[in-house]
Amino acid sequence: MAHLADDVLRFVRATGPRPDELLEEMDAYAEENGFPHVGPEVGGFLQLTARLSGARSIFEFGSGYGYSAYWFAEALPENGEIVLTEVDEGELEMAREYLARGGYDELASYELGDALDTIERYDGPFDAVLIDHQKERYVEALEAVRGKLAPGAVVIADNAMSAEDVVVFEDLLAHVEGQSVEMNEGTRGIADYLDAVRSDPAFETQVLPLGEGIAVSRFEGKADNTEALGSRR
Protein backbone atom coordinates (compact mmCIF):
# COMPACT_ATOMS: atom_id res chain seq x y z
CA MET A 1 0.00 0.00 0.00
CA ALA A 2 1.59 3.24 -1.17
CA HIS A 3 0.88 6.29 0.96
CA LEU A 4 1.78 8.89 -1.64
CA ALA A 5 -0.39 9.84 -4.60
CA ASP A 6 0.90 8.34 -7.86
CA ASP A 7 2.16 11.66 -9.24
CA VAL A 8 3.85 12.55 -5.94
CA LEU A 9 5.51 9.13 -5.81
CA ARG A 10 6.76 9.57 -9.36
CA PHE A 11 8.14 12.99 -8.39
CA VAL A 12 9.91 11.61 -5.30
CA ARG A 13 11.50 8.83 -7.34
CA ALA A 14 12.49 11.16 -10.19
CA THR A 15 14.19 13.64 -7.85
CA GLY A 16 15.85 11.07 -5.56
CA PRO A 17 19.16 9.23 -5.99
CA ARG A 18 19.21 7.28 -9.24
CA PRO A 19 19.50 3.49 -8.73
CA ASP A 20 22.46 1.91 -10.49
CA GLU A 21 22.05 -1.07 -12.82
CA LEU A 22 22.30 -3.62 -10.00
CA LEU A 23 19.62 -1.86 -7.94
CA GLU A 24 17.41 -1.78 -11.03
CA GLU A 25 18.00 -5.51 -11.38
CA MET A 26 17.06 -5.99 -7.72
CA ASP A 27 13.91 -3.88 -8.21
CA ALA A 28 12.97 -6.05 -11.18
CA TYR A 29 13.48 -9.19 -9.10
CA ALA A 30 11.12 -7.84 -6.43
CA GLU A 31 8.51 -6.96 -9.05
CA GLU A 32 8.71 -10.33 -10.79
CA ASN A 33 8.63 -12.37 -7.59
CA GLY A 34 6.34 -10.27 -5.41
CA PHE A 35 9.15 -9.71 -2.92
CA PRO A 36 8.27 -6.99 -0.37
CA HIS A 37 11.37 -4.78 -0.53
CA VAL A 38 11.54 -1.13 0.63
CA GLY A 39 11.73 0.31 -2.89
CA PRO A 40 13.89 3.11 -4.33
CA GLU A 41 12.27 6.02 -2.49
CA VAL A 42 12.98 4.44 0.90
CA GLY A 43 16.34 3.14 -0.31
CA GLY A 44 17.40 6.63 -1.30
CA PHE A 45 16.31 7.92 2.10
CA LEU A 46 18.36 5.22 3.87
CA GLN A 47 21.41 6.23 1.87
CA LEU A 48 20.90 9.92 2.63
CA THR A 49 20.35 9.22 6.32
CA ALA A 50 23.59 7.26 6.51
CA ARG A 51 25.46 10.13 4.85
CA LEU A 52 23.90 12.83 7.04
CA SER A 53 24.68 10.88 10.21
CA GLY A 54 28.21 10.05 9.09
CA ALA A 55 27.42 6.39 9.73
CA ARG A 56 30.33 3.96 10.00
CA SER A 57 28.48 0.99 11.50
CA ILE A 58 25.01 -0.21 10.50
CA PHE A 59 22.89 -3.14 11.70
CA GLU A 60 19.86 -4.57 9.91
CA PHE A 61 17.14 -6.64 11.58
CA GLY A 62 16.06 -8.52 8.46
CA SER A 63 17.96 -8.01 5.20
CA GLY A 64 16.20 -10.18 2.64
CA TYR A 65 18.27 -10.35 -0.52
CA GLY A 66 20.31 -7.26 0.34
CA TYR A 67 18.34 -4.41 -1.23
CA SER A 68 18.37 -2.00 1.72
CA ALA A 69 21.94 -2.98 2.60
CA TYR A 70 23.06 -2.11 -0.92
CA TRP A 71 21.61 1.41 -0.59
CA PHE A 72 23.22 1.82 2.84
CA ALA A 73 26.61 0.51 1.68
CA GLU A 74 27.02 3.27 -0.90
CA ALA A 75 27.18 5.80 1.96
CA LEU A 76 29.69 3.93 4.13
CA PRO A 77 33.38 4.87 4.30
CA GLU A 78 36.07 2.35 3.38
CA ASN A 79 36.43 1.29 7.03
CA GLY A 80 32.66 1.04 7.57
CA GLU A 81 30.60 -2.04 8.28
CA ILE A 82 27.04 -3.20 7.70
CA VAL A 83 25.70 -6.31 9.40
CA LEU A 84 23.07 -8.17 7.37
CA THR A 85 20.81 -10.68 9.14
CA GLU A 86 18.48 -13.15 7.45
CA VAL A 87 16.83 -16.47 8.34
CA ASP A 88 16.56 -17.57 4.70
CA GLU A 89 19.92 -18.95 3.52
CA GLY A 90 19.07 -18.50 -0.15
CA GLU A 91 18.17 -14.85 0.27
CA LEU A 92 21.31 -14.17 2.29
CA GLU A 93 23.42 -15.76 -0.45
CA MET A 94 21.69 -13.51 -3.00
CA ALA A 95 22.56 -10.52 -0.80
CA ARG A 96 26.19 -11.62 -0.71
CA GLU A 97 26.29 -11.91 -4.49
CA TYR A 98 24.66 -8.53 -5.11
CA LEU A 99 26.90 -6.67 -2.66
CA ALA A 100 29.98 -8.40 -4.07
CA ARG A 101 29.00 -7.42 -7.60
CA GLY A 102 28.50 -3.83 -6.42
CA GLY A 103 31.94 -3.75 -4.78
CA TYR A 104 30.61 -3.65 -1.21
CA ASP A 105 31.43 -7.17 -0.03
CA GLU A 106 34.35 -5.95 2.09
CA LEU A 107 31.98 -3.77 4.09
CA ALA A 108 29.42 -6.48 4.83
CA SER A 109 29.05 -9.15 7.49
CA TYR A 110 26.46 -11.80 6.64
CA GLU A 111 24.67 -13.44 9.56
CA LEU A 112 22.36 -16.40 8.95
CA GLY A 113 19.77 -16.84 11.68
CA ASP A 114 17.53 -14.90 14.01
CA ALA A 115 18.52 -11.21 14.12
CA LEU A 116 17.68 -11.05 17.82
CA ASP A 117 20.24 -13.79 18.48
CA THR A 118 22.78 -12.16 16.19
CA ILE A 119 22.64 -8.74 17.87
CA GLU A 120 23.73 -10.37 21.13
CA ARG A 121 27.09 -11.17 19.52
CA TYR A 122 27.79 -7.55 18.61
CA ASP A 123 28.79 -4.75 20.95
CA GLY A 124 28.36 -1.77 18.64
CA PRO A 125 28.11 1.11 18.81
CA PHE A 126 25.87 1.36 15.74
CA ASP A 127 25.25 4.64 13.95
CA ALA A 128 22.21 3.44 12.00
CA VAL A 129 19.80 0.56 12.45
CA LEU A 130 17.05 -0.76 10.18
CA ILE A 131 14.24 -2.82 11.72
CA ASP A 132 12.45 -4.78 9.02
CA HIS A 133 11.67 -8.30 10.25
CA GLN A 134 8.62 -9.80 12.01
CA LYS A 135 6.40 -6.87 12.99
CA GLU A 136 5.43 -8.39 16.34
CA ARG A 137 9.13 -8.39 17.31
CA TYR A 138 9.94 -4.76 16.56
CA VAL A 139 9.85 -3.78 20.24
CA GLU A 140 12.20 -6.64 21.08
CA ALA A 141 14.60 -5.42 18.40
CA LEU A 142 14.52 -1.88 19.78
CA GLU A 143 15.21 -3.13 23.30
CA ALA A 144 17.99 -5.42 22.08
CA VAL A 145 19.87 -2.69 20.21
CA ARG A 146 19.11 0.31 22.43
CA GLY A 147 22.20 -0.08 24.61
CA LYS A 148 24.39 -0.53 21.52
CA LEU A 149 23.51 2.73 19.77
CA ALA A 150 26.01 5.52 19.29
CA PRO A 151 24.94 9.00 20.45
CA GLY A 152 22.97 10.53 17.58
CA ALA A 153 22.27 7.14 15.99
CA VAL A 154 19.27 6.80 13.70
CA VAL A 155 16.84 3.89 14.01
CA ILE A 156 14.52 3.34 11.04
CA ALA A 157 11.55 0.96 11.26
CA ASP A 158 9.94 -0.11 7.99
CA ASN A 159 6.20 -0.82 7.55
CA ALA A 160 5.33 1.83 10.11
CA MET A 161 2.03 2.49 8.32
CA SER A 162 1.16 -0.68 6.41
CA ALA A 163 2.36 -4.04 5.10
CA GLU A 164 -0.13 -5.66 2.73
CA ASP A 165 -2.40 -7.83 4.95
CA VAL A 166 0.07 -7.84 7.85
CA VAL A 167 -0.32 -4.23 9.03
CA VAL A 168 -3.71 -2.55 8.58
CA PHE A 169 -3.36 1.22 8.18
CA GLU A 170 -6.91 2.10 9.23
CA ASP A 171 -6.54 0.22 12.53
CA LEU A 172 -3.11 1.73 13.16
CA LEU A 173 -4.45 5.23 12.47
CA ALA A 174 -7.31 4.71 14.92
CA HIS A 175 -4.82 3.55 17.57
CA VAL A 176 -2.44 6.49 17.25
CA GLU A 177 -5.42 8.86 17.39
CA GLY A 178 -6.38 7.38 20.76
CA GLN A 179 -9.21 5.05 19.77
CA SER A 180 -9.63 1.51 21.09
CA VAL A 181 -9.56 -0.94 18.19
CA GLU A 182 -9.04 -4.66 17.63
CA MET A 183 -5.80 -5.30 15.74
CA ASN A 184 -4.14 -8.31 14.17
CA GLU A 185 -0.72 -9.42 15.42
CA GLY A 186 1.30 -7.45 12.86
CA THR A 187 -0.62 -4.21 13.37
CA ARG A 188 -0.36 -4.61 17.15
CA GLY A 189 3.39 -5.08 16.79
CA ILE A 190 3.78 -1.80 14.90
CA ALA A 191 1.43 0.00 17.31
CA ASP A 192 3.47 -1.26 20.27
CA TYR A 193 6.70 -0.19 18.58
CA LEU A 194 5.43 3.32 17.89
CA ASP A 195 4.14 3.59 21.45
CA ALA A 196 7.50 2.45 22.82
CA VAL A 197 9.78 4.64 20.74
CA ARG A 198 7.57 7.74 20.98
CA SER A 199 7.30 7.48 24.77
CA ASP A 200 11.04 6.96 25.27
CA PRO A 201 12.65 10.34 26.07
CA ALA A 202 15.93 9.17 24.53
CA PHE A 203 14.38 9.16 21.06
CA GLU A 204 12.95 11.82 18.78
CA THR A 205 10.66 10.21 16.20
CA GLN A 206 8.87 11.16 13.00
CA VAL A 207 6.90 8.86 10.70
CA LEU A 208 7.32 9.51 6.97
CA PRO A 209 4.90 8.22 4.28
CA LEU A 210 7.62 6.75 2.06
CA GLY A 211 7.05 3.23 0.82
CA GLU A 212 4.78 1.57 3.36
CA GLY A 213 5.75 4.11 6.00
CA ILE A 214 9.01 4.45 7.92
CA ALA A 215 9.43 5.53 11.53
CA VAL A 216 12.66 7.52 11.81
CA SER A 217 14.05 7.94 15.32
CA ARG A 218 17.16 9.80 16.45
CA PHE A 219 18.79 8.46 19.61
CA GLU A 220 19.66 11.23 22.02
CA GLY A 221 21.05 9.02 24.76
CA LYS A 222 24.45 7.53 25.37
CA ALA A 223 25.62 4.10 24.27
CA ASP A 224 26.50 1.59 26.97
CA ASN A 225 29.60 0.64 24.99
CA THR A 226 31.48 3.11 22.80
CA GLU A 227 34.37 0.88 21.77
CA ALA A 228 35.37 -0.36 18.32
CA LEU A 229 32.71 -0.40 15.67
CA GLY A 230 30.76 -3.62 15.23
CA SER A 231 33.12 -5.46 17.60
CA ARG A 232 31.98 -8.89 18.71
CA ARG A 233 32.12 -10.18 22.24
Rank of each mutant, 00 (worst) to 15 (best):
I190V: 15
E25F: 11
N159C: 11
W71Q: 08
R218K: 06
V154A: 11
L172D: 03
L112E: 14
A191N: 05
Y104D: 01
G178N: 09
A150N: 04
E97R: 14
P209H: 05
I119S: 07
N159I: 13
R146S: 04
D132T: 12
A128H: 02
V197P: 13
L4C: 00
P77C: 02
A14G: 08
F219N: 00
I82M: 07
E143P: 06
G147P: 02
P36L: 03
D132G: 08
I119H: 05
R188A: 14
A2Q: 15
G54M: 10
V167Y: 00
H3E: 05
L9K: 11
V176E: 15
P36M: 01
S199W: 12
D192G: 09
P17M: 12
E204A: 12
E227V: 11
P40S: 14
P125V: 00
I82C: 02
L22E: 10
A150L: 03
E60M: 13
M94N: 13
P77N: 05
D114A: 05
V12T: 04
P36Q: 07
A100Q: 12
S57W: 07
F126C: 02
L173R: 12
A160L: 06
A73I: 08
Y65E: 12
A215I: 04
D195G: 09
S231Q: 14
F11R: 14
L99K: 02
R101V: 05
V38M: 09
Y122D: 00
G211K: 03
R10W: 00
Y98F: 11
F203R: 01
V87Y: 08
R18H: 15
F61I: 07
E81N: 09
V216E: 03
M1Q: 11
L76D: 01
E212R: 13
G186I: 04
L9P: 00
L229C: 10
P201G: 12
M161C: 00
G16R: 06
I119M: 07
A30K: 03
F203I: 04
N159V: 06
E185V: 10
A141I: 02
A100K: 13
F59W: 01
L116K: 13
L208S: 00
G39P: 04
L4R: 06
M161R: 00
D171T: 01
L173K: 12
A30H: 08
G103H: 03
W71D: 06
E106W: 10
M1T: 13
N79P: 09
Y193K: 11
S217P: 01
A191D: 15
D27R: 11
E220Q: 14
G16P: 06
I119N: 05
L149F: 01
F203A: 03
M161Y: 04
A153P: 10
I131M: 14
R13K: 12
G102F: 05
I131F: 05
L194G: 10
A115R: 03
K222Q: 15
P19S: 09
V216H: 07
